[in-house]
Design a protein around this nucleic acid. Structure first.
Lengths: 113, 113
DNA sequence: TTGACATGCAACCAAATGGTTGCATATAAT
DNA sequence: ATTATATGCAACCATTTGGTTGCATGTCAA
């Protein structure tokens, strides 16, 4: 995989690593087009904290924004999460049963060695 | 979702957030049962750095270990990654097409408002 | 038993992270 | 024009993170 993609994936993983950011994504999943103020309600942080989280989510392309008057509307972009799945988690899913089998055998061996 | 599960999920997300740790998981996906020394080769860090990463991976239950003599063997446990997918990423996947449609419409509106 | 190898543990350090407060700017409403 | 609302930007702070080095312990082999 080329460097650009790895870099992007890393941003997505890091963006997803914080529970406050995951909660923000959940809000946008429920209702798209929320403004910054909207997002502040129901998330127990200062507005600036929310802003900073949104900056990271935008950098990871998980959130796309659009200015409307004095408001900035936020939209969830599901593509990066899907990519993470197809080109990273999928790798593990493919070998999942095999891995579980290896693990099981290895741990069973505990008793008689 | 109850607190214990959210706490566990958070550990998994945080464990996956670092590229060195993802690289370690990749090594174990390729070949199970590697010792700490094995894992050190091919990862450009000190042994202690690798140890610390493995501690986090174990805490997230992504890696399971088994002592064999003076060696500690490491096994990939694919279950937490699968859980992350089914009970978190799946939520987004379900609304993916709808989200993309909303996003498209919102961005199209840019031109005439 | 003595030496080599595999791992464990603790202290330390620089940088990143997640949060705050204060002030500035832009747009809408009265 | 004035005021209120929505967002932007910067400085600051405590904690966490990812890494290091040094030393201790445990286990295998000669």
């Amino acid at each position: 995989m080329d460097t650009a993609k790895e870099d992007h994936d890393d941003k997505v993983f890091k963006a997803l690593a914080d529970s406050s950011r995951r909660a923000l994504l959940d809000s946008l999943r429920e209702k798209q087009g929320l403004s910054l103020s909207d997002l502040c309600e129901g998330h127990d942080m200062s507005r600036q904290a929310v802003t900073k989280h949104l900056v990271l989510l935008e950098a990871a392309n998980l959130v796309v924004t659009r200015k409307k008057g004095r408001e900035k509307l936020h939209y969830l972009n599901p593509v990066p999460i899907n990519e993470i799945y197809t080109r990273w988690i999928g790798r593990f899913e493919a070998g999942r049963l095999m891995a579980l089998d290896n693990l099981k055998k290895a741990l069973e061996g505990d008793n008689n060695e």
